[in-house]
Write a protein that binds this DNA or RNA. Sequence first.
DNA 1: TATTTTAATATTGTATACAAATTAAATGTG
DNA 2: CACATTTAATTTGTATACAATATTAAAATA
Lengths: 226, 226
Amino acid sequence: MSKVDDPLARSLQAKEIVKRLRTDIILGEYKSGSRLIESKVADRLGCSRAPIRTAFQLLSQEGLVLNLSNGGTEVIGFTSKQARDLFELRLLLEQKALEQILANRSFHFRPLLESMEHLEQRLSVPEIAPSSAETSILDIQFHRSLVMMADNSPLLAAWNTMANVFQAILEITNMTSATYRQFYESHRRLADLVIQRNPDAADELTRHIVNAKEIIIARLEQNMKS
Amino acid sequence: MSKVDDPLARSLQAKEIVKRLRTDIILGEYKSGSRLIESKVADRLGCSRAPIRTAFQLLSQEGLVLNLSNGGTEVIGFTSKQARDLFELRLLLEQKALEQILANRSFHFRPLLESMEHLEQRLSVPEIAPSSAETSILDIQFHRSLVMMADNSPLLAAWNTMANVFQAILEITNMTSATYRQFYESHRRLADLVIQRNPDAADELTRHIVNAKEIIIARLEQNMKS
DNA sequence: TATTTTAATATTGTATACAAATTAAATGTG
DNA sequence: CACATTTAATTTGTATACAATATTAAAATA
């Protein structure tokens, strides 16, 4: 690529672009209803339209922008109301996943065990506190592996629509370097109940998610413009 | 474009490509786990890779293919088990939408009224029986407008992940030219209850969806390869 | 022979160019 | 002045070319 010798203006990949736009939209940098112009964004970020198009499509499946019927994409925007809706949706989908996990005889633990291993590995170097970005990724991995256990691809697809937005929120609200031990143990408790096929897992999951809800939304509201 | 004088080999738009690939995957034309190569598909359909990339992304958000971490996309495939999961998900999401519609004081009927108008318009020309493609589109429109009434964009985004797949299934199973009147009245009944904010709407919705489930899946199984 | 390294191939990701379509502006007409 | 019609602009959609990466095959080493 032509700009390889200029490290500051190096071309961004689609994934970085999505991440940046997603955060901006959540924080209210774009007015709801305003139109996103591919060439404008491309110029501003110093890349071509190709990765921008990819990025817009990803944002669209996350519900942050809308693909207009005549072409073009407009910003849907994000409010604390939507953050609440997001938490409720997450709870709804994960409850459904858990219900199916507990109901079916055959299922595969592997993903859940692996994500717990990742969480544990991070405990082994307590001197360096995990960043909120790292923690949010570990959290998403854990919950995705839970949904994957249900072996229900439509459910997983639906869950995936909100996963990236959710992760961005966790990162923005700067959860949770100081309390990583607590964070870990909450997931440990939930994972154990799931693996034991203990029906209490459902309540634990609800508590796990509802607990996080209010504090995260409160912090999020401080950071949002609108 | 260069092939405009050759109507048979005219270049397909991304939306047509998605539609074709979606149907093929649902019918089992592609082996689950097999890899989709952009250039191969592009050659076969007689277009460039650009709309193919768009199409793959759309299929990915529908859960029919998977974007591999190192790039590339593989077919997830579709079984009657997944069709059942799809119906359950649809019910879950629409129940949630309805719950919020009935709980909130302020909401906008417009989309629902409009989609009912479309259904009625089709009744006014009974001499021409609606095709399954047309009926499936009207059905999806109705149910999308229901979800839109809840004014919950994460929920709508999740619902949208399964909408196109669902519509394709309706079309494949060739529902329901002969019984359009019945089809209409079922939706009329549901819409009236919703507009009246009658709590019975929840049960009516469940009946509405569960009724369709078994017959559609039975017909679908006849058409699928695997 | 088995395993690592290296080279060749295949495939995706991005940039650019152009065509098609949409939107906005300008012009004409009642 | 309002309203339709035409013209110009903006913007998206697709095609092609190239660069970067990943995958496979081949060669080299133990």
